[in-house]
Write a protein that binds this DNA or RNA. Structure first.
Length: 347
DNA sequence: AATTTAACCAACCGCCGAGCG
DNA sequence: GCGCTCGGCGGTTGGTTAAAT
């Protein structure tokens, strides 16, 4: 036969714990250790189920529990771990000393999850909510048909971040200038470019732009805004030249109070990263601003700068909720590959 | 000041794998 | 080997508090 039931549920108290019950449980565990949860309530003089005692201890009374607001670093860690582990709250909690799985789960559901949804990011996949943007049609037209000769080629994965960037740029272009969008779509078709070639072109252009940005910073000795650098792009830039409207989009960042903060510091990818995801010049959020509110529409929106960007993270002491919101968007999108190194630990 | 709505979070519920008898 | 419980986990509920009307 198996064990006898852990407790007879009849007559056992439920609901919030009183301070007296907390004291009894804490005193007993400090003297004897948790031991067997089944027999603990009786020995400790509690009218509770052992399971209830265990939950109260592990989630609330344990002396090593850190109470209070989550720090920015903790929040950052939760997001990165969640992108890898999903809803494995206990696994996430194991990497956040002093925090319980229950606490992390609550914080995720009440704060982080809502914030991601507001930013148009799917809290499950950590990818932009393409379903809200009608991007499938855009991708279908602009990418899958880019090279008719490669007719048997599989459609590109929607989770490919580079494709997502391109899709967002195309979405913005379609929104702001449908005529030009169709013109560029035709250009792409005529150029016989495959989706993978398109991605390579874009990456190559970005690298060249960043290199140019660094050179300008070094040569002039003064800070050159990404906006100025973008204006200086040579005419033969492949991808950007293919969709010249993109440069206009980037120039509009500043008027939106976002993106180009005039502080690239040789890390010109800041504006690039934040734009398409947070809804700046690329303005992925424009597709439906009622669903995806763009923090960039607020003048208070801040792109991480040297003053509040410390050791690769926003300084917790100077960040506002909006800043966290903005930073978390770019963090999710572009630091996941780095965090994948953690996978080794879980294998 | 009273009422309604939203946010928060502790606690419960139910499922599952491991292990006991 | 089987039946059962324990301990752990993730999802959900509902009471409390704060904010808005």
């Amino acid at each position: 036969m198996g064990r006898t039931p852990c407790c007879d549920k009849n007559g056992l108290k439920k609901g919030p714990w009183t301070t007296e019950e907390d004291h009894k449980l804490t005193s007993y565990i400090q003297l004897h250790g948790p031991g067997n949860w089944r027999t603990l309530p009786k020995n400790a003089g509690l009218q509770r189920c052992g399971k209830s005692c265990r939950l109260r201890w592990t989630n609330y009374l344990r002396p090593d529990i850190k109470r209070g607001r989550f720090t920015f670093e903790e929040e950052e860690t939760i997001i990165q771990l969640h992108s890898i582990l999903g809803n494995k709250w206990s696994a996430i909690a194991a990497r956040l000393p002093g925090r319980t799985d229950n606490e992390i789960k609550n914080y995720w559901n009440t704060h982080i999850r809502k914030r991601l949804l507001r930013n148009g990011i799917d809290p499950v996949t950590h990818a932009p909510r393409l379903d809200l943007l009608d991007l499938s049609a855009i991708l279908g037209n602009a990418l899958c048909h880019v090279n008719p000769a490669a007719g048997t080629q599989s459609p590109p994965s929607l989770l490919n971040p580079e494709l997502l960037r391109i899709a967002a740029a195309l979405a913005s272009l379609k929104q702001e200038n449908p005529e030009l969008y169709h013109q560029q779509q035709q250009n792409l078709t005529d150029s016989q470019t495959t989706p993978s070639q398109l991605i390579q072109l874009q990456q190559a252009d970005l690298e060249r732009f960043l290199e140019l940005n660094n050179n300008n910073d070094n040569n002039s000795g003064s800070q050159v805004s990404g906006q100025d650098n973008f204006a200086s792009l040579p005419n033969d830039f492949g991808f950007w030249n293919t969709i010249p409207e993109l440069s206009e989009n980037c120039r509009s960042f500043q008027s939106c109070g976002a993106g180009l903060s005039g502080n690239n510091n040789g890390n010109g990818s800041d504006w690039y990263q934040s734009s398409l995801i947070s809804g700046g010049g690329g303005n992925i959020g424009n597709a439906d601003s009622s669903v995806i509110s763009t923090p960039l529409s607020s003048p208070a929106q801040v792109t991480p700068t040297s003053s509040n960007f410390v050791n690769g993270s926003l300084s917790a002491s100077t960040t506002t909720e909006d800043e966290r919101e903005s930073y978390c968007s770019s963090l999710l999108k572009f630091e996941i590959p780095e965090s994948l190194e953690l996978l080794d630990d879980f294998m």
